[in-house]
C-alpha cells in the first residue's frame, strides 16, 4: 500500500501546487506543535480560584445527570459507596480499579461491601475507578488507561463510581492536556537529551499518551428515537462522583 501512500501525498502536493515542505517550513510547523499554544479558552474556564473551579465542576456535572457526593476524606469513601448503592437499590458488590491510588480506601470498615479488584467483566454491575482530573468547564472527568485503570471499568458496568479529589479539578481541557503531558511525557530536564523534533516519543521512549484517554461527561445517553433523551444507551446508566475535599493531592 506504499504506492497508495505516495499517490495520496503526491496528490495533496500537486493540488496545493507545491512539493514537500522545505526544512524551514517544516521546522516552523514542528515549533508550532512544540509550543502547545492555546487557542481561545472561554472566560468561563479561565482564571478561576480553586473554590470556584469546584463549584463550576459540580454544577456542570449535575446538569448532565452526573450525581456528586462530597466527602471530607478518603476514609469516608466506603460509607458513601454503601449509602449510594443502597439508595439506588443496587447490590453491595463492586469491582474496583487495581490502581494503587485507591489502595488506602478502608473497605474493611464496610464488611458487607463485596470488593473485587481488576478489569470489568460482563456480569459486573458496579465499578469504582480513580480519575486523572475533573474539567470544570463542562463537568467532564478525564480518565487514562493503564495497568491499574482498565478502560472496561468505565463502560461495561451499569453504574460507574469515580473518586475525584478536589485538588484534581482543573478549569479547562487545555489544563487537562498539560496534566497529561506532565504525567506521561515530562519535558526533559536541563542537560537531558531533547527528544527529536516532531517525534512522538517521550524521554523514555514511551508513546506520548496512554492507550486510551476518556473524557466522560455524564452517563451514557441517546436521542436516536424521536429525539427523546434516554440514559444508559450502551455505557453506564449512572455516573456517580465521590468528591473528596481533602488537601490537594497529586495535581
Amino acid at each position: 500500500m506504499s504506492a497508495a501512500r505516495d499517490d495520496i501525498l503526491g496528490g495533496i502536493r500537486r493540488a496545493l501546487r507545491r512539493g514537500p515542505l522545505s526544512a524551514d517550513q517544516a521546522a516552523e510547523l514542528t515549533e508550532r506543535i512544540a509550543a502547545h499554544r492555546r487557542n481561545l479558552v472561554p472566560a468561563r474556564a479561565a482564571a478561576l480560584d480553586p473554590a470556584a473551579r469546584i463549584d463550576l465542576f459540580v454544577a456542570m456535572a449535575e446538569e448532565v445527570q452526573t450525581t456528586v457526593a462530597r466527602v471530607s476524606s478518603e476514609l469516608d469513601i466506603p460509607a458513601e459507596v454503601a449509602r449510594y448503592l443502597a439508595a439506588e437499590n443496587l447490590p453491595a458488590e463492586l469491582v474496583v480499579a487495581p490502581d494503587q491510588s485507591l489502595d488506602a480506601i478502608p473497605w474493611d470498615t464496610r464488611p458487607l461491601l463485596h470488593i473485587r479488584r481488576g478489569r470489568a467483566e460482563a456480569q459486573d454491575a458496579v465499578s469504582l475507578t480513580p480519575c486523572l482530573a475533573g474539567v470544570a468547564e463542562t463537568g467532564t472527568l478525564m480518565l487514562a488507561s493503564g495497568p491499574g485503570t482498565p478502560t472496561t471499568l468505565n463502560f461495561l458496568p451499569d453504574t460507574h463510581i469515580v473518586v475525584l479529589h478536589a485538588g484534581q479539578i482543573v478549569a479547562s481541557y487545555e489544563d487537562g492536556w498539560d496534566l497529561l503531558r506532565a504525567r506521561f511525557n515530562p519535558p526533559p530536564q536541563a542537560g537531558e537529551m531533547v527528544r527529536p523534533t516532531g517525534g512522538p516519543e517521550g524521554a523514555d521512549g514511551a508513546p506520548l499518551l496512554p492507550r486510551t484517554i476518556n473524557l466522560i461527561t455524564g452517563p451514557s445517553r441517546t436521542g436516536d428515537i424521536e429525539q427523546r433523551i434516554q440514559l444508559g444507551a450502551h455505557g453506564p446508566r449512572r455516573l456517580h462522583i465521590v468528591l473528596v475535599e481533602d488537601a490537594p493531592s497529586q495535581v
Partner: peptide, 30 residues
C-alpha cells in the same frame, strides 16, 4: 468546543475518547 454545541446543542458529548495505539504492557484490556 464547537462540535457538540453545533451538533446536538450539548455543552460536551458524554464520551470524547482519545485512542493511541494498541494496549500497552501491563494493561488488562484494550
Amino acid at each position: 468546543r464547537l462540535l457538540a454545541r453545533s451538533a446536538t446543542g450539548q455543552e460536551f458529548s458524554s464520551y470524547t475518547t482519545i485512542s493511541t495505539g494498541p494496549r500497552r504492557p501491563g494493561d488488562l484490556d484494550g
